[in-house]
Amino acid sequence: MKKFHDGAFYGNFMLTNANENRFSLTDSLLFLSATTDSTSFLMIDMHDTNKQIPAGEVVRESTGIKTVISNRKYILCDKAGSVFAVSDCYPYIDQYDAHGKYIRTFDISSISLIKTSKEYAETFSPYETSIYRYIMDAYLAGGYIYLLCSSGISDEDYRVNTILKLSVDNEMEHIATYVLPHEFYSSFCLSDTFLYVAQEVRGATIERICINDCN
Rank of each mutant, 00 (worst) to 15 (best):
Y139L: 01
Y134S: 11
A138E: 03
I131C: 05
Y120D: 05
I135H: 04
S112C: 01
T116W: 09
A98S: 14
F124N: 11
K118R: 14
D107E: 02
Y134W: 10
A141Q: 15
T105P: 02
I145G: 00
S87F: 07
Y139T: 04
S130H: 11
F106E: 05
Y120A: 09
Y90F: 15
T123R: 15
I108G: 07
E128R: 14
D107Y: 04
G100C: 07
I103Q: 12
E122A: 11
Y92N: 04
I114Q: 09
T129P: 04
L147H: 10
R133T: 10
I103L: 14
Y90L: 14
D97W: 14
S130L: 12
T105W: 02
T105F: 01
K118T: 10
A141R: 15
I111C: 00
I111F: 00
T129N: 15
E128V: 11
K101W: 06
C89V: 10
S125P: 02
Y139M: 01
L148P: 14
Y92C: 01
L148G: 05
G100E: 10
Y120S: 07
R133Q: 12
V86T: 10
Y127P: 08
L140M: 08
R133W: 00
I93R: 06
D137Y: 10
D107I: 05
I93C: 09
T105K: 11
L147V: 01
I135W: 01
Y92I: 10
T123W: 00
F124W: 07
K115T: 06
S87L: 00
A121C: 12
Y132A: 08
G142L: 05
K115Y: 08
Y146K: 05
T116E: 15
S112R: 09
K118N: 09
I114C: 09
V86C: 08
S125Y: 09
F106L: 04
Y127S: 11
Y134A: 08
L148F: 09
P91C: 04
Y102L: 07
D137G: 07
Y127E: 14
P91N: 06
Y139H: 12
T129L: 14
V86K: 05
G100V: 05
Q95N: 05
I111H: 01
S110G: 05
A138M: 06
R104G: 01
L113Y: 11
P126D: 10
E119N: 09
D107T: 03
Y134T: 05
A138Q: 08
